[in-house]
């Protein structure tokens, strides 16, 4: 079986994101970038399935500007086999990404597609679901455990108030939650090996996908600042304050 993993290059989780002065987006110039943490988990899971004998190839796909090559290379250094880079500087909405992924998947014919449940930049949490719909495949989102058996997978999902187990027929789309695994470090010898692994670059046009945005961004702004709280000494004082505030 072949596994396709989609990865996204995002602003590093440790960087404080700032809104551009003109309100058109967030500041991306000279900002440290890294692989979306949920995508790292997706790569790790694919590698574990492969190492356990459940797959024979892991293919990494990313869509975005030139820099995304480095993110693909990082996944190859973790142990994936080859990469596909849909090269574009355009702003990509989840639907456009899902369509690009579908085009690549139509060619690759994998038995399983794994994505992060969301990217930590826009937190859309849409691409995996849209992709499954476009493909007409089963989907299992927010996975905290994946077990493959024959032509089906049992996925444990994290839902409000507990865990849910679903069985999906393969091929299927799975999106990862935080507790699925702890991604490995790419080791130096594997980083060197990854230099020789192929990354195929292609333009969105070549895939026949229209990536034009369907949404218009009116304005991007910082969330309102919370005003400082008040410390109270006793429960009685707390109740009195809540009364004064008209909350109780």
């Amino acid at each position: 079986m072949k596994i396709v993993v989609a990865v996204k290059r995002v602003i590093d989780a440790n960087v404080k994101v700032r809104v551009k002065a003109d309100g058109t987006g967030v500041e991306m110039a000279n900002v440290k970038m890294a692989m979306n943490p949920f995508c790292e988990i997706a790569v790790e899971e694919a590698l574990r399935i492969k190492e356990a004998g459940g797959a024979d190839e892991v293919v990494i796909v990313s869509a975005g500007p030139q820099g995304a090559t480095e993110t693909i290379r990082t996944a190859l250094a973790m142990g994936a086999d080859r990469g596909v880079h849909v090269l574009t500087d355009a702003v990509l909405e989840p639907l456009a990404v899902a369509k690009l992924l579908k085009a690549v998947i139509d060619k690759e014919q994998p038995g399983l597609v794994i994505l992060g449940k969301q990217a930590i930049d826009d937190d859309c949490n849409q691409t995996g679901q849209m992709l499954a719909a476009l493909l007409g495949w089963a989907q299992a989102t927010f996975a905290s455990k994946i077990e493959i058996a024959g032509d089906s997978a049992t996925v444990t999902r994290e839902i409000d108030g507990g865990l849910e187990k679903v069985a999906v027929k393969l091929p299927a789309v799975v999106t990862t939650d935080l507790r699925l695994n702890e991604p490995r470090y790419a080791s130096l010898p594997n980083i060197m090996k990854a230099k020789k692994k192929p990354i195929e670059a292609m333009a969105p046009d070549a895939l026949g996908v229209d990536i034009a945005p369907r949404l218009t961004v009116l304005k991007v702004e910082e969330p309102p600042k919370r005003s400082a709280g008040v410390k109270v000494e006793t429960a009685a004082e707390l109740v009195a304050k809540l009364h004064d505030a008209g909350v109780i």
Partner: peptide, 10 residues
């Protein structure tokens, strides 16, 4: 070089 940037990240 890219490989050292990746190593540095790790």
């Amino acid at each position: 070089p890219e490989e050292l940037r990746i190593l540095r990240e790790q």
